[in-house]
Design a protein around this nucleic acid. Structure first.
Lengths: 349, 349
DNA sequence: CTGAAAGCGCTTACAG
DNA sequence: CTGAAAGCGCTTACAG
């Protein structure tokens, strides 16, 4: 079966693809000249007259450089792959938007996401590398994933605390923030605290949990209880609802979620269970999402700068790709505790 | 500056890439034979002995087919691009997971996402096409985006009600669900209702809103008020909090959110404002996310099957790519109204 | 069943 | 400043 224009149906759109050769013919120059103009390398190498001819022909024919040919020749495509685990967290929307802006027009940002609740499968790395992306941005990896990256891969890790000195990394000071949060709760007089973790086993969550638990223990707090859930608000709510009777019986008076969305779930479930926050239970999270200040009660949170993270990682990767000065390869962005009503009781305010 | 193995630093990982030629040499066969074996076309064309030699060599050398070479030769890459607007909605996590499973191992699913609150820029289509993806899955597009798809593009539209008979489409019966919801509210005695829409201007949201408003009007309801917000729960909460005083003054007794996450925001804001649901205000949404039944009160919602949508679209695209029977190109998945506590008052239950 | 060879579209030294 | 030509790695008729 054929389409109206006679091309076979299962044939790719490429049947009528405009090639550099067509542009060259149209402009009366060689494909080498077309390539130089189109890739922005014409300065001092192509006459103004030819440059204009090519630009006109490109516009007339609607030419777009074919990535397959270009990738094969140059060794890499314009695609940057962002590897992410939980895109449902609004933290990502900010990160992606900032990373794309930092990478600029010459690169196309595409996401490779794992199934909900699972870390990224290391087996996907070779498949992705066979695409010859210009580079990788890898958010919240675990050790296994980092170990599976072949030497020479152009990659920047994001929020990968303590994972690598080999790979350029933009970190968030999640450990410092977690410690500050533990001190905050100790100062408020809490003696037994709990932690609601993610089911996804990645390094940043391990570090958050351990830094919080270790600091709390050092301060004489008891941190006996943990539970896990997906990042989705409502999974966290169910997880909390299920463990709360036991935690309550154990005398727990404060719960920390490993992200703000987990904390939102805790707040929601606490409300349902009739637990007054912060009087009967203090609640806090990580990320300081834009909404956290508008929660009721407003949420105490370790502020982690999503846009700065995306921006710094995007810039670093771009520098690496373009062979310029990559700058400092181990960046640590500061975090700080934002104290709000979900932990600080009214009289103290 | 050079790395330990002597390759220049800014050089792609490809410097030591294993090629089909190396495999061929190792196995003592031609690259044609390697290609046939690796791409699974060896049956009846390569001797068992050579097949085994190639497989061993592939394993020894860790060969992975290079996409750039393959794409150039075949005309398309193994990448399927999913174009999506609001990945923060948990609806997507399900859709993606199902679509990937339906596409199978031979394809790599990557996401192209727009900035938060914006529909996909049509200008991104030519850039994506220049990557020669095997196909596109395009969720919740608007007319402008669909119009910008060049003829011959292998694409399946998802949740694109009324947009196209040209492109294969898997639709959700959002209009039917919206109408059923309007009837449900009329049956419960509501006279004035409101609708909280998305800021993102895509067709499925327009159809939901219009079907709801038209049916409500036909039933004699007043639907004077609308407001918009991002899909994030908390944006919807702020939007609702802002308009509620006016809506309350206007006698609104029911509000429908264009997605469940919008409805979650309405529920949260209503609680903060001390508005009793469903007695003072009925609330409902679209999607019937897994959490909706666990909300408090449980949320009335138009059930839209995310996994079925991803599965059907993935299968359809795969059939199109592989030139087999694409089956019915205009699929409509059923929706139905799930009545829960957020609209049905206790005495009626 | 097998391999030599053409060709996919581009980029980049290279010679002029 | 310009173009002919080689080469990136693969797939696919084609001849044997």
């Amino acid at each position: 079966m054929d389409t109206a224009d006679g091309s076979p149906l299962a044939r790719p759109a490429g049947s009528r693809r405009v090639t550099a050769a067509m542009v060259a013919r149209e402009a009366g120059v060689s494909t080498a000249t077309v390539s130089l103009v189109v890739s922005g390398k014409a300065r001092g190498r192509v006459s103004a007259a030819n440059q204009e001819k090519v630009e006109n022909a490109v516009a007339r024919l609607g030419y777009v450089v074919d990535t397959a040919g270009s990738s094969l020749s140059k060794g890499f495509s314009p695609v940057v792959v962002l590897i992410a685990t939980d895109i449902t967290n609004p933290f990502y929307a900010e990160l992606i938007s900032a990373a794309r802006a930092a990478l600029g027009d010459r690169y196309e940002l595409l996401l490779s996401v794992s199934d909900p609740g699972s870390p990224t499968d290391p087996a996907s790395i070779p498949r992705l590398i066979s695409q010859r992306p210009a580079g990788f941005l890898i958010d919240a990896p675990n050790a296994e994933l980092v170990a599976s990256l072949p030497a020479g891969t152009r990659a920047v890790l994001l929020d990968a605390p303590g994972l690598s000195t080999t790979w350029p990394t933009v970190n968030l000071d999640v450990a410092g923030g977690a410690a500050e949060l533990a001190r905050h709760l100790a100062d408020l007089g809490h003696r037994r605290v709990a932690y609601l973790d993610s089911v996804v086993e990645v390094e940043t969550f391990r570090v958050r949990r351990e830094a919080f638990c270790d600091t709390a223990a050092d301060l004489g707090l008891e941190v006996g209880c943990q539970a896990s859930s997906l990042t989705a608000v409502d999974d966290a709510a169910s997880a909390f609802a299920k463990v709360w009777p036991a935690w309550q019986a154990a005398g727990i008076s404060a719960v920390v979620g490993c992200t703000d969305t987990h904390a939102y779930g805790i707040l929601a479930a606490a409300r349902v269970a009739g637990v007054s926050v912060p009087d009967a239970l203090a609640v806090a999270g990580f990320d300081d999402l834009p909404y956290s200040r508008h929660m009721s009660p407003s949420l105490t949170s370790v502020s982690l700068p999503a846009r700065e993270l995306g921006d710094a990682a995007g810039r670093a990767l771009r520098a690496i790709i373009e062979g310029g000065d990559p700058g400092d390869h181990q960046v640590m962005l500061t975090s700080r505790l934002i104290r709000r009503d979900s932990t600080v009781p009214a009289p103290t305010r």
